[in-house]
Computed example of a mutant assay.
Amino acid sequence: MLPPRRHPALPDTGLLIGRLAVGAVFVAHGWQKLADEGHGAVARTFDHLGIPLPGLAAVYGTWVELLGGLALIAGVLVPLAGVLIALDMAGAFWYVHMGKGLFNQEGGYEYVLILGAVCLLFAFTGAGRFSVDSVLWGRRREPAPERRSVPA
């Protein structure tokens, strides 16, 4: 049996810090696609990269990054946001970075790999207690294991 945690809020604090940092990155990328380039320019870039259905992919990528990033920051619908963003990063890996090696400086996939993996981490673990999800849905508590006394 594991001993009780001395600081039970630490894992939730770690999730909060991670969600804020990763969410900010995705909001910035989504906003850049929307405000600086627009769907048409993003679609043309995606078409040049050989991404199927570039117009639809541009809309998906823009809005999943922007709204998914905001969802991570707020901690709302984090499992859904995490999966959708991870799929976005899987597309970036497959169509843009896969053949260029690991290192980002060479156009490789290390950045999208880490972002996608962290988003799956959020999807699988949830947002933690410092989130809108926790306020709306509450924390699922597992029943405490029964303690059996050992006969003397």
Rank of each mutant, 00 (worst) to 15 (best):
V112Y: 05
S149H: 11
K33F: 00
I85Y: 09
A71K: 04
G30H: 06
Q105I: 13
D47T: 06
V132E: 04
L15Q: 14
W31Q: 13
A117M: 12
L77E: 03
P145K: 03
S149L: 04
P11D: 15
G14I: 09
L87Q: 03
M89I: 15
V135C: 09
P52G: 09
Q105G: 15
A71I: 07
P143C: 13
Y95A: 10
P79M: 10
V42H: 01
R44M: 10
I85S: 14
L77P: 07
G18P: 04
G18A: 06
A35S: 12
Y111L: 13
A35D: 14
L80A: 15
G108E: 14
G126V: 06
P54I: 13
G82H: 08
G101V: 09
N104W: 14
G108S: 07
L34R: 10
E37F: 12
G99K: 11
G101A: 03
E142Y: 06
D88Q: 11
G50W: 08
I17M: 05
L15I: 06
L113A: 05
V132W: 10
A90S: 15
F124V: 11
Y109R: 00
A123T: 04
L66R: 11
Q32R: 09
S134G: 12
P8S: 07
G23V: 00
V83L: 12
A57T: 10
R140M: 09
S131N: 13
A86N: 04
D12Q: 04
F122I: 10
N104S: 12
R6G: 14
Y95I: 11
A117N: 09
L20A: 13
A86L: 04
V76W: 04
H7D: 12
T45W: 00
A43H: 00
G18W: 00
V22N: 05
G126E: 14
R148W: 08
E146C: 11
L120R: 08
A21F: 14
K33E: 05
P143G: 07
F93H: 08
G30R: 12
G99F: 05
R147I: 15
E65F: 03
G55F: 06
V25Y: 03
K100S: 13
E106T: 07
R139T: 13
F124L: 14
L15G: 09
V132F: 02
T45I: 00
T62Q: 03
L113C: 00
A21G: 03
T13W: 07
P52C: 03
K100D: 14
R44F: 04
V42R: 02
G75S: 11
D47E: 15
P151Q: 00
A43S: 14
D133N: 08
D12G: 13
L15W: 07
G108L: 01
V150E: 09
L10F: 04
S131T: 04
V59F: 15
V135W: 15
